[in-house]
Computed example of a mutant assay.
Amino acid sequence: MREDGRLLAIRRADNGTWELPGGILELNETPEAGVAREVWEETGIHVEVDQLTGVYKNTTRGIVALVFRCKPSGGTERTSSESTAVSWLTPDEVSERMAEVYAVRLLDALDDNGPHVRSHDGKQLIPTG
């Protein structure tokens, strides 16, 4: 997240959807180190990891994603083999371009009342009981 409130997002090379940068941790790395590595690999932006803002479970695939708020600390936006576009989006642009299950992750990062814990089926959020 930049100081002006814009949020870093990528357009994925494999399916053309807008999402936040991310990926799978290496066996020997901490979640924070993995976040910094994945963001740099996919966007060219170096980040300082701030705090955990959400935990998101895909109930269909059994995948749990951790989302951390980060601050840019250098680098220049560039695409990669995993991204065809890199952009700093406003919260409104996030809501317009991203599927609900991805947009909520970035929008939750704006909120200091986290970390949020949510579940989804891969397409839509599942309301909590």
Rank of each mutant, 00 (worst) to 15 (best):
E93R: 13
E93F: 02
E93L: 06
E93W: 03
V94H: 05
S95Y: 00
S95T: 08
E96Q: 12
E96K: 12
E96S: 09
R97I: 02
R97G: 02
A99P: 09
A99H: 11
E100H: 04
E100D: 07
E100F: 03
E100C: 03
V101G: 01
V101P: 02
Y102D: 15
Y102H: 14
Y102Q: 10
Y102T: 06
A103H: 04
A103F: 05
A103C: 05
V104I: 15
V104S: 02
R105A: 14
R105G: 04
R105E: 14
R105S: 07
L106N: 11
L107Y: 07
L107A: 08
L107F: 08
L107N: 06
L107S: 07
D108C: 10
D108G: 06
D108P: 11
D108R: 07
D108H: 15
A109F: 03
A109W: 02
L110K: 05
L110M: 08
L110G: 09
L110A: 06
D112Q: 09
D112A: 14
N113Q: 12
N113I: 00
G114D: 10
G114R: 08
G114V: 12
G114L: 10
G114K: 07
G114P: 13
P115A: 03
P115H: 06
H116F: 15
H116N: 04
H116D: 00
V117E: 14
V117F: 12
V117D: 09
R118Q: 13
R118Y: 02
R118M: 10
R118P: 02
R118T: 01
S119F: 08
S119C: 05
S119L: 08
S119R: 15
H120R: 05
H120G: 03
D121T: 11
D121K: 07
D121P: 02
D121N: 15
G122H: 03
K123Q: 13
K123C: 00
K123V: 06
K123I: 02
Q124F: 03
Q124T: 11
L125R: 13
I126L: 14
I126Y: 02
I126D: 03
I126T: 01
I126V: 12
P127Q: 06
P127I: 08
P127K: 05
P127Y: 02
T128S: 12
T128K: 12
G129M: 01
G129A: 12
